[in-house]
């Protein structure tokens, strides 16, 4: 067993199985397995998984592409941001 995504404990075998069961674009594969959404923000797992998918499909890494990026780049505590406008108006 080889762990590829260390935030979500996703194995190499699970990745191959998902690709072979029809999740053959990087966005759908990401949402099938939930990689790239943990505290590492995908910096560890995504480049590896893009390569695995490219190899399985016989495509280049460029053709497979990278999934959409979501801010913030590093995790931020809620308390640091909690000095904004207090939205108390009525619905």
């Amino acid at each position: 067993m080889k762990i590829v995504c260390r935030c979500e404990d996703i194995t190499y075998e699970e990745i191959l199985e998902a690709i072979r069961s029809g999740y053959t674009d990087i966005e759908s594969l990401k949402r099938k397995l939930n990689f790239g959404m943990g505290p590492c923000r995908g910096r560890i797992c995504i480049p590896i998984i893009v390569k695995i998918l490219a190899r399985e499909l016989g495509k280049s890494v460029e053709e497979v592409g990278y999934p959409s990026e979501r801010p913030p780049i590093i995790p931020l505590p809620l308390g640091i941001l909690a000095n904004g406008e207090d939205r108390e108006e009525k619905s």
Binding site: M37, L78, I80, A82, G84
Partner: peptide
């Protein structure tokens, strides 16, 4: 970015214990 501030402000007011929880994605 201003959404994050407004959300965090209101959430921490309703549940102060969450203030040290990290935001991962928006």
């Amino acid at each position: 970015l201003d959404f994050l501030e407004v959300f965090a402000t209101n959430l921490v007011k309703v549940m102060p214990i969450l203030k040290n929880v990290n935001i991962l994605r928006q």
